[in-house]
């Protein structure tokens, strides 16, 4: 460093200059720490990938398992019976069924509430709805599971006798309640980010509020809304406690929401709760299931990211 050395204009008390070497050493240490933090987050992802793939590979090497049987099999019975079957589709089916029920309720309801909050609702009404959503968002999932078990399931069984004691619909509805605040608040953020001028332009052309909300604002916020939907789906796919409590524990390849299913997360909980010996095929199978689950959520996250980046409208 070359010195810039004009005299300070006004003579102020100058004290002693602080040591630059000391500062540089201290700052290097802090920077190393900060970079360490960033490295930690990458290390976490890498560790997840390594653990899941190593243990899943160990699972596929076992005699009674084949990779092809895993990804194409339609029967999953790792615990019972003389012959074990490891076909993952019944578990995936359970996950998708619960997710489908949940999204069929949460996405439209959440989007409508979001549009209403952002385009119609008066501040006073917002002041009621927003805290309700915040409280809903803060409720632990085990509470929703309990709610599904003790309120939704009896309710469904009262409506229609075909529902089982454990069923996909009940778990799905509870997941819907859980996802509702996520969809609503993220979609509302996207809608509110649409500039006022766009709305004013449409109103200036004689559009009604409905037309402005549905034909102008919603399309303009579409990328944010889609990203919110994808995030909600990812949360529903990965939801554990609700399905562990309310969906049941018998994997079956069915599309009937009244019947008992076992989603992937439910199976993992069952294994780690100690129903299986620690080193058998069924124990390692949970890693293969976890890897499948991780791939699904990773895919959803990446698609959501792409949508946000690719189709984002930038407003000044």
């Amino acid at each position: 460093m070359t010195a810039i050395n004009p005299q300070p204009a006004v003579s102020l008390p100058r004290g002693r200059p602080k040591s630059k070497i000391l500062r540089r050493v201290r700052e290097s240490c802090i920077m190393a720490g900060l970079i360490g933090c960033g490295v930690f987050s990458i290390a976490t992802t890498l560790t997840i990938i390594v653990i899941l793939s190593v243990e899943a590979l160990r699972f596929f090497r076992l005699d009674e398992v084949s990779f092809w049987g895993f990804i194409s099999g339609t029967k999953w019975s790792p615990l019972l019976g003389a012959e074990k079957h490891f076909g993952v589709w019944p578990l995936i089916c359970g996950t998708l069924l619960v997710t489908a029920v949940a999204m069929a309720v949460a996405l439209p309801l959440g989007l409508i509430t979001a549009i209403w909050l952002s385009e119609y609702a008066k501040p006073k009404v917002r002041a009621v709805i927003k805290p309700v959503l915040e409280v809903l968002a803060g409720i632990p999932t085990v509470v929703f599971g309990f709610f599904a078990l003790t309120v939704i399931t009896p309710g469904l069984r009262w409506l229609h006798e075909g529902f089982g004691v454990y069923n996909a619909a009940s778990a799905g509805l509870a997941v819907a309640v859980m996802c509702l605040p996520i969809v609503t608040s993220l979609a509302e953020d996207a809608l509110r980010a649409v500039p006022r001028s766009l709305r004013e332009g449409a109103f200036g052309l004689g559009a009604t509020r409905f037309e402005v909300a549905v034909k102008v604002v919603t399309p303009a916020a579409l990328s944010g809304i889609v990203a919110a939907f994808l995030l909600a789906i990812a949360r529903a796919v990965g939801e554990t406690m609700i399905v562990a409590l309310a969906a049941g524990a018998s994997p079956s390849l069915t599309l009937d929401p009244r019947s008992e299913v076992q989603p992937m997360t439910g199976y993992m909980v069952q294994i780690f709760l100690g129903d299986a010996s620690n080193y058998g095929a069924e124990y390692y199978s949970s890693y293969a299931v976890a890897a499948t689950l991780f791939l699904m959520t990773l895919l959803l996250t990446l698609i959501g990211h792409r949508v946000r980046v690719r189709y984002r409208q930038v407003y000044e």
């Binding site: 976490t44 997840i48 653990i51 899941l52 554990t240 909980v269 949970s286 689950l293 991780f294 959520t297």
Partner: peptide, 14 residues
Amino acid sequence: TNLAGVPSVVYGIL
């Protein structure tokens, strides 16, 4: 962003 989307049960396994 990806880590935020990983299901918590997978963190349990980790």
